[in-house]
Design a protein around this nucleic acid. Sequence first.
DNA 1: CATAGCCATGAATTATATTCATGTCTCATG
DNA 2: CATGAGACATGAATATAATTCATGGCTATG
Lengths: 303, 303
Amino acid sequence: MAMDALLDLPQLRTFYTLAQVGSFTACARRLGRTQSAVSHAMAKLEDLAGVLLLDRRSRGLDLTEEGRRLYQACEQAFTTLDAAAEDLKRHQTQARGRLRVGATVEFGSSILMRHMQPFLAANPDLEIDFTLSQDLLAPLLRDDLDLVIDCVEHPLPVLKKAPLFRETYVVACAPAFRKAHRLRVPADLSRCPVLSLDKAGAWWNRFLVAVPDRDQPHLDRFIAVNHVRAMIHAAAEGMGALLVPRYSVLEELERGDLVALFPSIRPTEDRFSIYQKKVKAAQEKQKLLTRYLQSLSPAEFGS
Amino acid sequence: MAMDALLDLPQLRTFYTLAQVGSFTACARRLGRTQSAVSHAMAKLEDLAGVLLLDRRSRGLDLTEEGRRLYQACEQAFTTLDAAAEDLKRHQTQARGRLRVGATVEFGSSILMRHMQPFLAANPDLEIDFTLSQDLLAPLLRDDLDLVIDCVEHPLPVLKKAPLFRETYVVACAPAFRKAHRLRVPADLSRCPVLSLDKAGAWWNRFLVAVPDRDQPHLDRFIAVNHVRAMIHAAAEGMGALLVPRYSVLEELERGDLVALFPSIRPTEDRFSIYQKKVKAAQEKQKLLTRYLQSLSPAEFGS
DNA sequence: CATAGCCATGAATTATATTCATGTCTCATG
DNA sequence: CATGAGACATGAATATAATTCATGGCTATG
């Protein structure tokens, strides 16, 4: 018996995650893909299996009888494999030496720093420096940095790029602010102050390009605040509307300190990647950090 | 913990097969890929794992300590998944109706027929007709056939193509024949009779194109035999050299009735595919047969 | 009944795996 | 030893598959 290409492994993995989180969209976020990708994958899996695995009728997504059986098998199998993979990692050579890491200011200060501790602990002989800055490419090229996490594209042949995660943005403001300014559509922003990371307001472009022409607001009352956390506090106090990475205001949205505006408008996303010089990317310490970062994104970063 | 893209599933599957069969080349054959593909896959897996999994020093390919542990996990996981997949198949709807299958004469008569019994037994309400012929495309297009297994390319937009397996060819003759004609290099074939499926000798082209110019034989003593099995018997009796699919003479080679000639020359391979009209490929009975055939190739077909 | 959330889908694109065409190395053999 | 066959590696080209993009449909909800 051949029994080989009976089921597609990556699709099974997606199915497993989907069954755990209970929604295509959530599964996509967890895996760092789009909802569409998950949908396509499940369609193919069901086609290959020849049976429906998901019950899409009800809210909240059920598994069919067959789906449930398959899920149990997945659980056992993937638990085993993950444990084995974990095990492999443990026996990896520890890195030594020094590693100079660069990252964007917002990402570096809020997200990156909160997740480096386990890596540092696992590699006590590795000295790591962090440099948070807007300009990361130049220092990387002149070897002042070894590894850089950035959201702007650097398509240079000497650089190796490894995708990390995707960052989505939201427009939000204090609930009272929305009432006061009667914010219904993007055009309503014309009348009210908006918080921007830069004085010129270029910060808002990622939002504006996603707004259809007839709804375009004419933003002119900018309040410049060159610090994301500060912007968030200002917005919560009702100083203006803001545009920020979704992850940075999850708590505020949860608590109701801020409300999301215009949910149907999706500002352009940032794709964060790891950049390294190809020659140095082969070094054990750089590979180790790369793998570590990739292992926790996007579930930890994304949102 | 994310624990997701830690190890690549398809590569793990390859690793598992590789460990079972003990050789890159054999693993490739089993999976219907090239040796190169297996090599690339294992290189990537080891890179991702950060540890060597294979011990390439000795003959016969060992696993390292880490490799052995990983293998055990794979065994458990894939056994589970395969069982679940098996299970899914069992509960598939049986096909009903009629299915008219076409195939090339040699493949159809020798291989296909030997593997259809389980499928027929599993689908008692399905009538299947087999048509073995050289010309398969025309009947398929005019709906005299529903599904066709062929080794010539039919790149038509109305047809759906599903790869099945790869067929390799060997040149062989009786041991005594080799001695008698002192067959050392392809050019030596000029002096002796060769068996051909057609009178003109076009049959031998797949061999000739693989021979470097300076070794080109000038074949002219053709013995035409329009039946592969008959050709094999003729060759075993020392009537001439023959060119046939490897699988068709495995036993003869094993027993020593025939010996392979010029092992360094690799005649062009045939890639067998299933062709169906796209509109009809969606029918349950056609999908069922397609999946069945794919599930037993190439391990059963290939060689 | 307009909207937001959730999933499906076809076409275009991107990423990835595979092949092709070599090269290297080792083992067996005359 | 020289030679050739077998087995694996490797870089570039290519084929294949996965993913995104840009939609559209459906269903609850206020």
